[in-house]
């Protein structure tokens, strides 16, 4: 496998979401980023319940409303209509971000443009001069949420590294990422750098290394395909 086939290898987006959901404990307060991370909510393992936080003032967010049941005053951070589950609560923005910044949210799952081996995350701006900068709540989430997971394709659409030694894009936070879930593997960010946690079916450690712009260390479980 060379890098050009990497984007088609390993887990599908749904399967990546399933890997993430499987690693989140029952009863966790969870914030899912816009886009791919939202799929995590479709793969909550049987017997577990996650309580979803959305930055615009709702804890206990449910799924998308049925047609005809849309309420424009009930939206998520992506400004899409949502529903609530029993036990939900509404609150203002300062309370919402006290939950985030005060360490009360257990897990957030975010997308990434780049993740560096020291846990630096870049996911808000390409830094291009004509780009409209927009950060939203990303910097607050990575600064305050207890566990920060990143969910992303392993390489960009034009086959450049996303897991790198140093981020070239503007940072969202420094040393904040705990674990990266890609189509090829689950990789922990440790004091030593990237550490392989598990491989997608049919993917080898060597292939992950080839598709990664920084060293990927292996621990005791090296090469074990936990999902074969």
């Amino acid at each position: 496998m060379n890098i050009s086939t990497v984007s088609r290898s390993g887990w599908t987006r749904e399967q990546i979401a399933e890997q993430v959901a499987g690693d989140i404990a029952d009863g966790s307060y969870v914030n899912l980023g816009i886009g791919m991370p939202e799929m995590v909510s479709k793969f909550v393992p049987n017997g577990r319940e996650f309580i979803y936080h959305t930055e615009n003032g709702l804890l206990g967010m449910g799924g998308t409303p049925k047609a005809g049941a849309v309420d424009l005053d009930l939206i998520n951070a992506g400004k899409k209509p949502v529903t609530i589950v029993p036990g939900a609560s509404f609150f203002h923005h300062a309370d919402s971000f006290a939950m985030v910044r005060g360490g009360h949210i257990d897990v957030c799952v975010l997308g990434a443009m780049q993740v560096a081996e020291n846990g630096d995350l870049a996911n808000w701006s390409t830094g291009e001069p004509d780009a409209i900068p927009a950060v939203g709540g990303a910097m607050d989430l990575v600064a305050g949420v207890k566990t920060v997971y990143v969910m992303t394709q392993h390489v960009t659409k034009d086959e450049r590294f996303k897991l790198v030694e140093y981020c070239s894009y503007p940072l969202t936070g420094s040393g904040v990422v705990d674990r990266v879930y890609t189509n090829l593997a689950v990789i922990d960010v440790t004091d030593r750098g990237f550490m392989l946690n598990r491989l997608a079916p049919g993917v080898t450690y060597e292939e992950v290394c080839e598709a990664t712009g920084a060293k990927v260390h292996i621990g005791k479980t090296e090469g074990i395909n936990t999902n074969a």
Partner: peptide, 15 residues
Amino acid sequence: ELELVPQGTLAERIR
């Protein structure tokens, strides 16, 4: 002009 502020910082600055 644009002053870009992280959402939680914006909320806390207002609070």
